[in-house]
Structures are given as C-alpha cells and as structure tokens.
Design a protein around this nucleic acid. Structure first.
Lengths: 156, 156
DNA sequence: CCTATAAGTCAATATGGTTGACCCTGATTC
DNA sequence: GAATCAGGGTCAACCATATTGACTTATAGG
C-alpha cells in the first residue's frame, strides 16, 4: 500500500481527477440545460453571487471573454429575473450587478448538488481524512497555501 | 480542525476542485497549443495510447463525437506521423489505429507534466496521505470502488 | 451478384466565440 | 457650456467546432 509513486498509480490518479471533475460538474450542467442555460450563465451567476455589486466591465475581465460574448447571456439572466442590474448612484454609467432572490436560489441549487457529493464523500471517509484531502488538493493546486478563500471568487 | 462540513468549507472544496483541475490540465493544453493541436487531439492520442489497435468506429463511439468531427483531427495526427493506421488483415475495411514512436512520445510528454505535479504533491504530504487522497477521490467519483483501472481508458 | 458494413467526404446548419466600428449616456475638464 | 473621455450596448463580419444528412468507395460475405 505504501509503495512509491508507480506510473500505473499515477495514471490512475489522472483518470480519477478527470472522472471526479466530470461527475462533479455534470449534475449542475444538467440543471442548467433544463433551463436553456450553459456554463457561461453558470459562471456569471457564480461570480455575481460571490462578488455582489460587480460591474459589467469587471465581469468581462474576470471571465476573460469579450463584452459582446457576455452581453447575450447576461441579458437573458436579467430577463429571467435571476440577475438585477442597477446604476451605480455615484457614477450612473456603471451597472452594479447582483443576484435576485430567484438567482440566489438557482445558484444555491447548482452548488448544492456539489456540496451534497462532497459531504457524502467526507462523511464516508471521516473528518480526519477529509482534512487530508484538503491538504493534498491544495498541494496539487499549486498555491500550496491552506484552504485560503481564493483570490476573490474565481471558479467554476 | 475537525469541525463539521460547514458551507464555507464546502465552498472552498468546490473552488479547490475547480482550480486543481485547471492547473492539472493547463500545462498539457499549452504543449498541445504549441503544436496547433487541441483537446480532441489529446483525447484521440490518449485513447489510442490506452487501447492500441482501436478502430475508427470504436474511437467515434468512445469520444461520443460524430465521425465527421473526428476525421479532421485524426487525419492531422496521422499526417504529423503521431498516429498510424493500418488495415486489419482479417477485415480490410476496418482501420486499426495505434501511436507511432513520435505519438507515444507526445502522449508521454502530456501525461508527464501531470504526473510530475502529482508526485510533487504526494511527496510533499507523504505516502499515507496520498493513499487517503485516493480513497476520498474514489468516493467523490461516485464509483466508490478502489483505484480500479477504470472502464477501459476513458479520460482525459 | 447483391447487400451490408467501415470509413471518408461534401454540404448545410447551429453555436459560441472573436474583432472592429459605432452609438448613447453620463462624468470630467477646460 | 462645449469638448472629450469612459462604461456600456449593439451591429456586422468572421472563424472554429460541432452537428445531421446524403453520398461514395472499398471490402465482406451470403
């Protein structure tokens, strides 16, 4: 069990990463699809949820897409009453984006399935092993820091 | 440290999954890009590498794309001398695909960067914690079985 | 000989992204 | 107060990647 890092073992780890990520995102994708939404919508919801009062320009920069590419999905989301946009009182050119109640609901629904999967796994292996998982993932992640709250909302 | 699965902690886990996956695949993507290749090429290389003598039809089915979508990338790969195709002696309609020496080299290069990242993390945390990581990931993956070799080559 | 199958190809279409140019509105500055 | 700048929205052209459908070619096999 404590053998070194054989190639087979590492190959297994690569596949495990792939499949776990897939399993992790597939349910959210299905929920989105049912509403005619895609990952851009998801990312928009996510970022606005984590950073309320975000501006359109900041969102464009964060998502690293063009404003034309953002425009349509964002408009859909506001039309679906998931996101609301209000002019900044200090500078009425800028739009401050935030989630509506409905938007928060959907965003919560999306992360809920992932949380459920996580808690199931963590409960199955126990709290100590869960802590270790966090440490290994942090190492794998590069920024080997702890569970630090991440730059300022950046996934999914 | 052994507190329950708080939402903040779970949110952290979600971001960790996302960023780790990104970090995990980004280097391979860069290598591919330098050669004008993309993820389809990567997946083709991967599957042929894991399942030599694969046929075109099987590859289409495995990748779950249309044969038209596969055709161009596959042709490029054979023209670049990374994949070789030979008629099956028993049934000359079917093409048996396998990696050339060059193809194996590229495929190895692609997984090498991921293996390097894995071994670095596993070495940093120790063999016991690495074992635990495998167990937790297997749980998260759904098929909570062990490190089982996966259906028959299925990532990336 | 005739038919079914593996593979390759052409064409039309959809999606989702890009860049460039331009407009509107509200700040800022002289 | 007029000129200019910045945030945001929109139109158009274009590109990449995928799809489906219809067809061809070559081979297998009753």
């Amino acid at each position: 069990m404590v053998d070194p890092d054989s190639d087979d073992r590492l190959l297994g780890a690569i596949e495990l990463m792939y499949f776990t990520y897939r399993a992790f995102t597939s349910h959210a994708d299905k929920i989105l699809e049912k509403r005619g939404l895609n990952r851009v919508h998801h990312r928009v919801l996510y970022f606005i949820g984590r950073n309320p009062e975000l501006t359109v320009g900041e969102l464009v920069e964060t998502l690293a897409i063009s404003k034309q590419a953002l425009n349509a999905p964002l408009r859909q989301l506001t039309e679906m009453n998931l996101v609301c946009a209000a002019a900044d009182p200090a500078d009425r050119r800028v739009k401050r984006l935030s989630l509506t109640k409905k938007g928060k609901g959907l965003e919560a629904e999306l992360t809920a399935s992932q949380m459920k999967r996580l808690t199931a796994a963590f409960d199955a292996v126990g709290a100590d092993d869960a802590d270790i998982w966090f440490r290994v993932m942090a190492e794998l992640c590069g920024r080997s820091g702890g569970t630090g709250p991440a730059p300022k909302g950046s996934a999914p």
